[in-house]
């Protein structure tokens, strides 16, 4: 069986259909969001400790960061 290309090795190119500019008055680059928004729209690449469930770990992060809602990459529909 030949080795199939996993999704993370799929290469895509960007093709331009039309040219336009974006108005700096609206929105902002993801990495430049104001801190509070940055957190609200943020993700953490966590090294999960062995033992507790993913759910428990997410709850800990929620408490540490003092947030309302936190989900994890294992939840079916957050």
């Amino acid at each position: 069986m030949p080795r199939t290309v996993p999704p993370w090795e799929t290469k895509r190119k960007l093709l331009v259909k039309a040219e336009d500019k974006t108005n700096p008055r609206y929105g902002c680059k993801p990495e430049e969001r104001p801190v509070e928004e940055y957190m609200k729209y943020g993700v953490i690449n966590l090294d999960k400790p062995a033992g507790p469930t993913s759910h428990e770990v997410a709850a800990w992060v929620k408490r540490i960061l003092n947030l309302q809602h936190v989900g994890h990459g294992g939840t079916l529909e957050a």
């Binding site: 957190m39 953490i44 993913s54 936190v70 957050a78």
Partner: peptide, 26 residues
């Protein structure tokens, strides 16, 4: 430590469904 567990804060939880369908490596 059992490795990569992406944690989604607040609004970003809506996007983790995209992760559920993506491949994994162990």
């Amino acid at each position: 430590m059992t490795g990569v567990l992406p944690i989604a804060l607040e609004e970003s939880r809506k996007i983790v469904q995209a992760l559920l369908l993506s491949g994994k490596e162990y």
